[in-house]
Amino acid sequence: MSVEFDVAVIGLGAMGSSAAAFAASRGAKVIGLEAYFPAHPLSSSHGDSRLIRLGYFEDPSYVPLLQRAYENWRALEAQLRTDILTVTGVLQIGAPDSKIVSGTRASCEMHGLAHQILDKQEMARRFPAFALDDGEIGLLDPQGGYVRPEAAIMGYLKLAAEHGAALHFGEPVLSIDQGGNGVTIVSGTATYRARKVIVATGAWIAELVPQLRSRAVPIRQVVAWYQPSDGFVAGPQRMPCFLRDDGEGGSYFGFPNIGIDGVKVGRHAHFREPIDPRAPNPPVNEADTALLDSFVRKRLPHAASMRARATTCRYTMLPSEDFLIDHVPGAPDVVVSSACSGHGFKFTSVIGELLADLALEGGSTLPHGLFSFARHFPNG
C-alpha cells in the first residue's frame, strides 16, 4: 500500500488540531482522524476557559515555550480575527514558601518577568474577592489570563482545513503499525498510510501507545460555577484569574465572572480518581460539590455564592506531571503528545508547532528536552 499522506494526526483535540494546522500550513499533506467531534465533553478541551500564565511555578524551563505560545496565540487571533486570549492577570495566592508562590517567584526572577508581591492588606484593597489568612500573600503575574478552548480548537481546525488537511470526525483509530516506509493506520472504516503519525488522543493515549499503559492515567476532574455575591468584585477588572496553594488541602484554580454561569472554580486533580476513558464521565456527586462549596465559602466569600452548575471532565496524568512529547522509542515515525497532566492547554499554540517540527523535520529548535521518553522513563 503506497503512502497517501505526509502526516496523520490521530486525535483532533487541543494538541492535535494545532499540530494539523501547523503541518498543513507548511505544505504537508495531512489527514486528521477524530473519534468524536470537536471539543466533545469526553475530552479535556472544553468548558469555556483555561488559565494561561508566564511565571510558571512547575518548572522555569517552561517559560520560553510559554513566551512562544503567547506569540502564536496572538498570531492565531490575527488570522481568525477573533479573541482567544484575554489578559486579566493571574494571582498566585498562599504562604510565601508554598510551592505555587515560591515557584512562581523563582520562575519570574530567573526570566526577568514582571510580577508584583502583595501582602494581605494590599490584596484586600486591590482584590477584595479573595480572603487571605494571616501571613499569606498574593503574587500577581500581570500578563496572565485565560484562553477560550472551544474557539482555539475550532480555529485551528479551520486553518488546517483551509490549508488542505482532510479532517475526519466520528472515525476512531483501532491500530497503528510502523513498518517499511511509513505507518499504517487502521480506523473503524478505512486503512491509511502516512510517512509520519502524531498520536494526540488524550485519555485514550495508551490504547495506541502501549508504552504508556499504567503510566498515562486518566482521572476525573470536577469544576463548578458560582453566581457572584458581589458582581463588582467578581468582574475581571477587580478579580484576576487565580491559583491558590492550600497546603495539605491541595491547589485550586479559578476564573472571574466572565460568562453567564459566574465564577469558575476547581481543585487541581480533584480527588485523583482513575477512570475508564471508554466510559462516560462519572456524574458530579455530593462529595465533589461539598469540597468546592467549602472552598468558595472560605476563600471567595465576596465573589461566589450560589452554585449554578458543576461538571466533570478528565485529566491524563503522567507520574512527573510534566508533558511527554517525543518520538516513540523504537518507532521513529510515530510522535506522541501526552501533554498535559492538567496544565497543558495554554501551550496548545506552541505544542502544535513543536509536533509539526518533530513529524516533518525530525527535531525542533523549540526547547523540549524536559518532555522526552528517556527523562520520563529512564528505566524503559
Rank of each mutant, 00 (worst) to 15 (best):
253 F>P: 06
268 H>E: 00
263 V>I: 04
51 L>E: 06
94 G>N: 12
220 R>K: 15
108 C>D: 06
30 V>G: 02
356 A>E: 08
348 T>K: 02
104 T>M: 06
71 E>A: 14
336 V>W: 08
365 T>P: 12
97 D>T: 06
178 Q>Y: 05
321 E>F: 13
285 N>K: 14
209 V>A: 14
238 R>T: 07
121 Q>H: 14
203 A>H: 04
98 S>A: 06
201 T>I: 12
103 G>R: 00
158 K>M: 09
198 I>F: 03
113 L>W: 08
65 L>R: 09
100 I>D: 02
145 G>W: 07
223 V>G: 15
197 V>C: 08
277 P>D: 09
184 T>C: 03
121 Q>V: 09
145 G>P: 11
367 P>T: 01
143 Q>R: 13
217 V>Q: 06
223 V>A: 15
293 D>N: 15
1 M>A: 10
102 S>W: 02
309 R>G: 11
212 L>P: 08
119 D>E: 08
60 P>N: 00
220 R>W: 03
221 Q>M: 13
223 V>Q: 14
20 A>I: 09
269 A>Y: 12
180 G>F: 02
234 A>Y: 07
286 E>N: 14
284 V>W: 12
242 F>I: 00
99 K>L: 08
36 Y>H: 11
295 F>S: 07
164 G>P: 11
187 S>V: 04
2 S>N: 03
98 S>L: 04
257 N>F: 01
36 Y>C: 03
215 R>M: 12
15 M>F: 10
247 G>Q: 01
32 G>N: 05
354 L>G: 15
253 F>M: 06
69 A>N: 03
204 W>Q: 11
332 P>S: 06
17 S>L: 04
80 L>W: 04
313 C>I: 05
254 G>R: 06
112 G>S: 12
248 E>P: 07
82 T>L: 05
78 A>F: 02
165 A>K: 14
23 A>S: 11
172 P>N: 04
160 A>W: 13
186 V>R: 15
21 A>R: 09
71 E>Q: 15
150 E>Y: 02
4 E>N: 10
235 G>H: 05
75 A>P: 10
182 G>A: 04
262 G>I: 00
42 L>M: 14
338 S>R: 12
253 F>Q: 02
317 M>K: 00
81 R>F: 11
270 H>N: 08
367 P>R: 00
82 T>G: 10
196 K>N: 09
175 S>Q: 04
321 E>S: 12
367 P>L: 03
205 I>P: 06
106 A>Q: 09
360 L>Q: 10
371 F>P: 03
81 R>A: 14
304 A>C: 11
373 F>W: 09
145 G>H: 07
268 H>D: 00
359 A>Y: 13
72 N>K: 07
137 I>M: 14
120 K>W: 02
128 P>L: 10
237 Q>T: 13
65 L>A: 05
89 G>C: 01
195 R>Y: 05
132 L>H: 12
277 P>W: 11
305 S>L: 13
117 I>E: 15
68 R>L: 09
179 G>K: 04
314 R>C: 14
344 G>Y: 05
49 S>V: 02
